[in-house]
């Protein structure tokens, strides 16, 4: 065990947002059982920015999907604050995602038929205490692009719209799956800056999964995964800003 509860987070003792214990996930692919996750324990705390590092197939996406209520573990327990996610119904998981989770995907997943503003509004429409979509777009540096359709935006801009969309509902947790995976380094830095800004501004617990080790430098904690388990958790004494990261 990594003794997660004793880990410290800059800014003093924090309450755990997620408690995951003994998580395992098996996929049956034809006649082969794939152990995507096994024996994973992890706590995530308020306000922290966690980077999960690992090569492809290490189970990081599976973990993120389970935390985000997109997937259910084969065994083990996930508790989000006072909600137990394991055993929740599909409707309960939908409500959980709607109220608490913001997602950022590698391929942005914007709705091509909606403008930047409308893509953000898509989420604020169903959120209980949303921020203003235009303000959120301003926060990621897209104030003058609010009425553009995805096809009129660059990749980096699209990903920043996705971030604005994710944070506009003021989620408790922001889950980002390879957010810079499809971007060049310069654009990637802009996107990471936007994520760090959101984390700073709103104190949203942010999880970024990546196979790019350089990004770990901007995290409070770095979780390293391999072969479906957590191999290490390290705490950065000092977070570097996204602008300082090179890859």
């Amino acid at each position: 065990m990594q003794g997660l509860k004793s880990s410290t987070v800059p800014g003093g003792p924090q309450e755990a947002v997620f408690h995951a214990r003994g998580l395992a996930k098996n996929y049956i692919m034809g006649e082969v059982v794939v152990h995507a996750l096994h024996d994973v324990d992890l706590d995530l705390f308020e306000r922290e920015l966690v980077v999960i590092l690992g090569p492809s197939g290490s189970g990081k996406s599976t973990l993120l999907n389970i935390l985000g209520g997109l997937d259910v573990p084969t065994s083990g327990d996930v508790v989000f604050r006072d909600h137990r996610l394991t055993g929740a119904s599909a409707n309960e998981l939908t409500t959980f995602r709607r109220e608490h989770v913001g997602f950022v995907f590698q391929f942005y997943n914007l709705i091509p038929s909606l403008t930047a503003r409308e893509n953000v509004a898509l989420v604020t429409d169903i959120a209980s205490a949303p921020a203003d979509p235009v303000e959120m777009l301003a926060l990621v540096g897209l104030r003058d692009r609010v009425d553009h359709f995805p096809s009129q935006l660059s990749g980096g801009e699209q990903q920043r719209v996705a971030i604005a969309r994710a944070i506009a509902k003021r989620p408790d947790v922001l889950l980002c799956d390879e957010p810079t995976g499809a971007l060049d380094a310069a654009t990637g830095r802009v996107v990471l800056e936007a994520l760090a800004g959101a984390n700073r501004e709103f104190g949203t617990t942010t999880v970024i999964i990546t196979h790019n080790a350089a990004i770990a430098a901007m995290a409070d904690r770095v979780v390293t995964m391999g072969s479906g388990t957590i191999s290490s958790i390290a705490t950065n004494q000092e977070r570097r800003s996204a602008a300082e990261i090179e890859w």
Binding site: A90, T94, R97, R98, F105, I126
Partner: peptide
């Protein structure tokens, strides 16, 4: 498919 799945992930219900 992708678009509709994204919406589901963003918290839209099946009915929506």
């Amino acid at each position: 498919t992708r678009e509709l799945c994204t919406l589901r992930i963003l918290g839209y219900g099946f009915g929506d």
